[in-house]
């Protein structure tokens, strides 16, 4: 097990390095000029050249990348061109918020999705199945910001039940945290619920047909025990696969929800940074995202092994 995890972490690091490298190249070939971005368009040619050298743009790409990488390893992520702040100081609180929101949404949508999927699989063909599947498909087709705006309308404009915006950490004020997060979480999780519900349903339906379920029944176990103890465990493997993929989706999709509810996450910062060619911020964000998503996939792989012993560790 330890060997497995360490080899996967090794792969993860390779992935992150490659991602950061390719992002570096991509950012480099973008049409906007970083010197102008940093110093503004009204500079003289001398100032331009001074700026050019100051940003080390005269050195070859690989060297620049190497310098950036070595600084990062020491903890120095550079200074934002636009905000003139340490990138880490700028990004850290925002990434924490976005990740918190995304991970929480992932948990909620998985929990609810699996539950609904199980219900629809067990009640296949009956009215519960039809209604829930219809609702799931409906929710899957609603974009998150539409839902967000709808909720805003219902809970803030028509009635003043919930606050419109902001974010508080749960240890600061738990009640406020819950109130502020209720709508964004709902909006973000909704589409995830639908796809996980569908996957769970199809996976469970396939497992229910298997011989070992017949064996379980023939042992005289309660149907409920058969479903939860035998069917679910086997059906979960493909659903777990979705975990990493969904998390990536949530991190990206959180942007819309953050925008509507004015949650101080990374969404708007990223859009600005790209428009503005704020290279250090872009790099930092991409690398951090790559790390987070790779971790999610690593967790997925570990979960596989925990759930299904046939997936061996070599």
């Amino acid at each position: 097990m330890v060997k497995y995890i360490s080899s996967r972490i090794g792969q993860m690091l390779v992935t992150v390095v490659l991602v950061s490298f390719f992002t570096y190249i991509l950012v480099d070939i973008m049409p906007k000029d970083p010197v102008y971005a940093l110093y503004g368009p009204n500079i003289t040619q001398e100032e331009y050249e001074a700026g050019y050298r100051a940003l080390d743009l005269d050195k070859p790409l690989l060297v620049r990348y190497g310098m950036w990488a070595s600084k990062v390893l020491r903890g120095d992520w550079g200074t934002s061109y636009k905000h003139h702040m340490q990138v880490w100081k700028l990004l850290a609180p925002k990434i924490a918020v976005t990740l918190y929101l995304s991970v929480l949404s992932a948990i909620v949508s998985f929990a609810v999705g699996i539950l609904l999927g199980a219900v629809t699989a067990v009640k296949r063909g009956k009215w519960q199945d039809t209604v829930l599947t219809f609702l799931a498909n409906l929710c899957a087709s609603l974009p998150s910001f539409v839902v967000a705006l709808g909720l805003l309308y219902l809970f803030c404009i028509r009635s003043q039940l919930l606050p419109t915006s902001g974010f508080t950490w749960p240890w600061v004020d738990f009640g406020k945290h819950v109130r502020q997060l209720a709508m964004p979480l709902f909006a973000l999780s909704l589409s995830g619920v639908a796809s996980i519900c569908r996957q769970t349903r199809s996976s469970m339906l396939e497992v229910i047909r298997q011989d070992y379920i017949r064996t379980a029944r023939s042992k005289g176990l309660r149907e409920r025990v058969v479903i939860v103890g035998h069917v679910m465990r086997n059906a979960l493997v493909p659903v777990i696969t979705l975990l990493g993929n969904r998390l990536a989706y949530f991190i990206g999709g959180a942007m819309f929800v953050e925008n509507v509810f004015s949650i101080p996450g990374t969404g708007s910062l990223m859009v600005q940074s790209i428009n503005f060619m704020d290279v250090p911020v872009i790099q930092a964000f991409v690398v951090l995202s790559a790390v987070v998503i790779s971790l999610a996939y690593l967790v997925t792989d570990i979960l596989y092994v925990a759930v299904d012993p046939r997936i061996s560790l070599d």
Binding site: Y212, A216, N234
Partner: peptide, 11 residues
């Protein structure tokens, strides 16, 4: 049952 390969819960 007949198929011992698939009649036991694999997980």
């Amino acid at each position: 049952f007949q198929e011992p390969m698939t009649s036991l819960d694999p997980v």
